[in-house]
């Protein structure tokens, strides 16, 4: 698949936003009766999370041919994970906003209760996003629960790191704990991603023989009747040589997972680490697309 930049930004930005919200809520709950970090920290982090969410939303519009009709996308929640995402995303944003308001109002009890709704929506949004990919059966690299799990793990890890970064400035008391959480979450996310990489490497390629219904060992495409290209060549081929794809994978694993762990251990400021990890996750998302081999490509191998 060709990585669509709007989607790369959308998923990584909102992933971090949801993650931050979940971590904040967890932090809030950990204390039980009231925050042991300053309110400003909650409000700032929550605000940043909302900003990221909004930025993701904006990015997503670039993906649409007709953004002005985007509202229509809520209509098919019965069948479409995309539709569900479109519904859950603003709900989550709304829930987070409300939660922050409750915090701001100091209504801890209500915040504790409503926070669970917010966290639920955040997780639901991960599921929706992940399922958008996992539900495309023909993209076997994606069509697995691990895809959803990974969206969640990577999102929460980057959210944790973001939270830790902000905490280093506004809530030093909880910062080390948050950093440690981010470190562990990143490691777990790495495991998750590792599992999917391992799995994807083992998926046998689709066979041209099945695609064209001819039973023979040796089949080569000669032409596809559109030498100047077409939509199906643009959308499903990343167009990069294997070296680039490998390099992106290395960058993704390095910047997205390994380096953050090492840097956190070295005590590098978490906000910087977050930025690095974010870049790594962009690369990861790029690779996520690039590694998915669409069966339609069998029909478009040679101009």
């Amino acid at each position: 698949m060709r990585p669509a930049f709007s989607v790369l930004f959308l998923t990584t930005l909102i992933g971090a936003a949801q993650g931050a919200a979940i971590i904040l809520y967890a932090l809030f709950l950990a204390k039980g009766s009231g925050p042991d970090a300053p309110l400003a920290f909650y409000l700032t982090t929550g605000g940043v999370s909302l900003l990221l969410l909004a930025a993701g939303l904006v990015a997503s519009f670039f993906h649409l041919g007709h953004p002005e009709r985007a509202w229509r996308a809520v209509t098919c929640w019965r069948t479409s994970w995309l539709s569900r995402e479109v519904i859950v995303l603003p709900l989550f944003g709304f829930a987070e906003l409300l939660w922050l308001l409750l915090l701001w109002q100091g209504d801890w009890r209500a915040a504790a209760a409503w926070g669970s709704v917010m966290a639920f929506l955040a997780i639901a949004l991960y599921v929706c996003t992940g399922m958008i990919y996992a539900a495309v059966k023909v993209l076997r690299e994606w069509a697995h629960p691990i895809t959803v799990v990974n969206y969640l793990l990577m999102g929460v890890a980057s959210g944790a790191l973001l939270t830790a970064g902000i905490a280093e400035g506004l809530a030093p008391a909880v910062a080390p704990m948050l950093a440690k959480a981010a470190l562990w979450l990143t490691l777990i996310a790495l495991v998750g991603r590792g599992v999917s990489l391992w799995r994807n490497a083992r998926i046998p390629p689709y066979s041209t023989a099945r695609a064209i219904g001819v039973h023979h060992q040796r089949i080569r495409q000669i032409s596809q009747g559109s030498m100047g290209g077409n939509y199906n060549m643009r959308e499903y081929f990343h167009g990069q040589p294997p070296e680039v794809v490998r390099a992106v994978l290395i960058a993704a694993l390095g910047a997205g997972f390994l380096a953050p762990v090492v840097l956190l251990l070295l005590g590098v400021p978490a906000l910087l680490v977050f930025l690095l990890q974010y870049g790594g996750l962009l690369a990861e998302r790029w690779y996520f697309f690039a590694e998915a081999r669409h069966p339609q490509n069998l029909y478009y191998q040679v101009v």
Partner: peptide, 26 residues
């Protein structure tokens, strides 16, 4: 109704949907 999200074409195994770049619809 189409918002041009292209999601349907991802789901189709056969590569037969074409996004019209001028009208921005599938």
């Amino acid at each position: 109704k189409c918002i041009g999200c292209k999601y349907c074409s991802w789901a189709c195994p056969y590569g037969v949907r074409e996004f019209d770049e001028e009208r921005k619809v599938m």
